[in-house]
Structures are given as structure tokens and as C-alpha cells.
Amino acid sequence: MTFAAARETRQITKALAAKLSGKVRGEDRTVRRDSYDVDDKRANVWRPIGDGTVGGAMDWRDSFLQTAREYDDHHRGDRGVRPLGWTGIRVLEMLLGVRGVPICFKTGRLEPAIDTLARIGRLSRTTVIRALARLKQHNFLRWVRRSQKTDRKGEFAPQRVQVTNAYFFDIGSLPKNVRQRFRDLMSRRAQRRAAHATRQHSTPPLPPAPPPVPSSPDLRDALARLGAQVESASTPKGQYPAQGVR
């Protein structure tokens, strides 16, 4: 009996035993609660980063990271305990594409695996999970769980598997003062970008004016004779053939 045939036989046996015992397959135990199918519109939570352009997204990212760092420093506890911590800031940097995690600025699509974050950030899986929880607790990150159908429909086997979370950022969920700080930083960066663009597209400088011509005929003649003498005093072509000067 081949492996495939043996597997099919086991599945048929399990299904028959479940039917005889009155058991009905329930939700897959490997799928977390409140997980939406990847094709469910409720799992489509991504939003453009900034205005979706590279320049606008970079301004948004830098402003958001600076806001998070300032928040983490301002709310430091008496013993130096920070609400986000350096691991939280590192994970946030990775999610925003600073450390190699792919993110689409145009759509905001962001779905890295926890193991990927751990590998790129050189952190343990547990550390990444705790950092994500702190970011979510302080409203610097949100996500939805997702699942996907398997290709084992009709079999007495898992019908769904857990897939990576869909991560997104919601500025509106931040505290009012933190949200205002972020907007101030964005405004400053937008002003600097506009000023830089204005300088680049400004009218180029005029070419230097030609040297003035003396009004006196005698002075013009004297300058012309001086120029001729300087030109005649230069080294004639081929004067030093032995040295290869031509």
C-alpha cells in the first residue's frame, strides 16, 4: 500500500468513527479566535503610509518613529522602565521598513511573520510577541488575525490554518497630545520639503558679465599689444620633442 493510499484509508476510518460516535468536526483548534479569512473585507485593514509616495511615506515614518521615541522617553517610570522599551522601538522600526521588513508605502500592506521579525531584529520570539503587545497597548500598532482555507475540504482534517497577522497604524487611536505632536512633526517636515523643492526649481543664476571694455582707444591698443606679447611668449608646439611634448 502506498503512502497516499494509507493516508486516505486513515482519513476514511477517522471520518467513519466520528460519524458512528455522533461527533461533528468543530472549529479548527490551530486557528485563533476572531481570525478572519484572508479574503474577508474585515481583514483588509491596510492604509497608505502618508500620502502613498516614497517622499511622503518617509516623512510619515520618521515623524511616527520620533513621536514613539519621545512618548517612550516622556512616560519613563521611576525605575527607568519605559512603556515601549528599546525592543518595542526596534520592532516598530522593522514594521516601518527601517530594518529590512518589506512594507508597501502605497497600500500599507504589512504582514510579516513573528519569526521573521525575530530573525531580522535578532530577538527571541517571546521578546517580539511582548514588544508587539506593548505597541498595541499604547496604540502605536494594531492588527487583525487571519486564517486561510486548506486544500483538504471534505477530509476529516483541519480545514483552516492560521496565517500571519495584518498589521496597520491608526493615528486616530493615539492620545490627543501624542496625535498633535505627530501632526506638528509632519507639518515641519512638509515645510522643509516644500522649501527644498522651491530651491531646486528656482531660476538659475545669470551667467557672469563680460569684462568691461576700456573706453580709451590708446588703452585698448595697449591691452591688445600686451595680450599678443603674452601669447607669443608661450611655449611653441613641438619645442621639446625629446620629452614627448607636442
Rank of each mutant, 00 (worst) to 15 (best):
S202G: 03
A222Y: 03
R225F: 06
A209K: 15
L206E: 15
L206D: 14
A209W: 14
A224K: 09
S216F: 05
S216V: 01
A228N: 11
P207I: 03
P204A: 00
D218L: 05
L226K: 11
P214L: 02
L206H: 13
S216M: 02
H196V: 06
D221T: 04
P205G: 04
T198E: 15
R220M: 02
P204S: 00
T203D: 05
D221V: 02
L219E: 14
A228K: 12
P204K: 01
L206Y: 14
A209G: 09
A209S: 13
G227H: 15
S216H: 05
P208D: 15
V213W: 06
A195Y: 12
P214G: 01
P204L: 00
R225S: 04
P217Q: 04
P212D: 09
Q200K: 11
T198D: 14
L223K: 09
P214Q: 03
H201I: 01
H196N: 08
L206Q: 15
P210E: 11
P208A: 15
L206R: 15
V213N: 02
P208V: 14
R193G: 06
H196A: 10
R220G: 00
L226M: 12
L226I: 11
D221Y: 06
L206I: 10
P217L: 02
P217D: 06
P211C: 02
P207G: 02
V213G: 01
P204I: 00
R193A: 14
S216T: 04
A222K: 08
A195I: 12
H201R: 10
A197Y: 06
R225N: 08
P204E: 00
P212N: 07
S216A: 04
P210M: 07
